[in-house]
């Protein structure tokens, strides 16, 4: 695939989510369409299927998702149960893809258990995943097997815990500096 001008109307062909689902299912994937409570639709796949699906989505000329716009993680621990989504003890990684050629987008979701959070790396498909995955590893504690340099990115290497997890407890000291102030509770939750 070569980077083509986005303005060539002959090449431009936006696909619906159902059409993308067919292409994904051709990769022996058990992908399903999930709908968030506010109607946002996305594809849900299993972690083990991710590398093959990601490669297909990028390299298939019909989908041509050259851009990984956003890769992030959400801790579902305290998310209220919804009609078609029961409350889960899981972490979810969300891949927002975009195709400059066809100007269509896709949201891909992968869930992994919180205790042994592990999702294969996609840095071989989209180089930018190198940084996104390190950030998720740092802040949410998801391991990405296949990543060439999985270290903490934003926090110091000796930091304990993953702050964006919903059960994170703030440390009372760091590097000999007292972080806890008098009268302050250091449980996770709103600042008061």
């Amino acid at each position: 695939m070569s980077a083509v001008s986005a303005r060539n109307p002959r090449q431009k062909k936006a696909l619906s989510l159902e059409q993308i689902l067919e292409i994904v299912q051709a990769q022996d994937s058990q992908a399903t369409i999930t709908t968030a409570a506010n109607g946002e639709r996305s594809l849900q796949i299993r972690p083990s299927e991710l590398p093959a699906v990601a490669r297909a989505l990028k390299e298939d000329d019909r989908t041509a998702f050259e851009q990984l716009c956003c890769l992030t993680g959400v801790d579902l621990l305290k998310f209220p149960a919804q009609a078609d989504q029961p409350a889960t003890d899981a972490l979810q990684c969300v891949y927002d893809l975009h195709s400059v050629v066809h100007t269509h987008s896709l949201r891909l979701k992968v869930t992994t258990p919180r205790q042994a959070a592990e999702i294969p790396s996609v840095e071989a498909v989209w180089g930018v995943a190198t940084f996104f995955e390190r950030e998720i590893f740092d802040l949410l504690g998801v391991a990405f097997p296949g990543h060439h340099d999985l270290r903490r990115l934003l926090l110091p290497p000796d930091w304990v815990g993953h702050p964006l997890r919903k059960d994170y407890v703030y440390p009372e000291t760091y590097g000999g500096v007292e972080l806890k102030r008098e009268g302050q509770t250091f449980e996770s939750g709103p600042y008061t």
Binding site: A37, N38, C70, T72, F79, P80
Partner: peptide, 29 residues
Amino acid sequence: VGEVYFRTENPRGETGYYLVSDGTKMPYR
């Protein structure tokens, strides 16, 4: 309740917010 990913063109390129809401007055993510 739900989620949204919104992309805008900033001087340094795409700035996107992925927001997850659990229906309360504070964002979930």
